[in-house]
Amino acid sequence: MKLISAQNISYKINEKMLFHNLSLEVCSGQGLHIKGGNGSGKSTLLKILLKITSVSKGLIEYKNQDLKISYLGHKNAIKNYLTPAQNLQLLFEDVSLTNAFGWLEKLDLYQVQDELTANLSFGQQKKLALIRVLAKSSELIVLDEPFVGLDKAASELLNSFFLQKLSEGTGLILTSHIQPSVECQVVKLDKTNV
């Protein structure tokens, strides 16, 4: 089942073409790994697929209008004047909140849950931000460089999370310089797309 498909999309910024006539699709249970050098437009492509950024040309279609997507970009979207626990309380309710606190424990953040997020290390903040995706049930997961800043244990946890979600039929789109252990189709962004 097709979750998302992009047909012949082009994007230009200040009259400079970033990519041209790019087509891709992700079905449920399938992963997509977007590769490319710095400044090749990986993050922009993710935002385009999320319909945050509008394309210059082309079409993006979702399976249905209210496709449930969870996303984490290179910005963490957590409040650093709140504690991790308070941050999660803002994001989740009821059952998913318990689930989120479960992840807090698994990711080794339980001891620091009442400290200010601003005082946590970069990796800890990244892990906290990832809980937004981990504890939410969704049909499509979109991640921008999820492995950056994570230690070995957390990376393995993330990889096994991907594996489990893919087997459950969730779609996965990610950009990463680190090869994820799950099997993905690969899209490469470079000069040939232009």
């Binding site: 935002k47 999320l50 945050i52 970009g73 910005k75 963490n76 979207a77 409040k79």
Partner: peptide, 14 residues
């Protein structure tokens, strides 16, 4: 500003 800087705006938009 704060919501824009830390990416919360994008999340809300989604």
């Amino acid at each position: 500003e704060e919501d824009f800087e830390d990416g919360s705006l994008e999340q809300e938009y989604l």
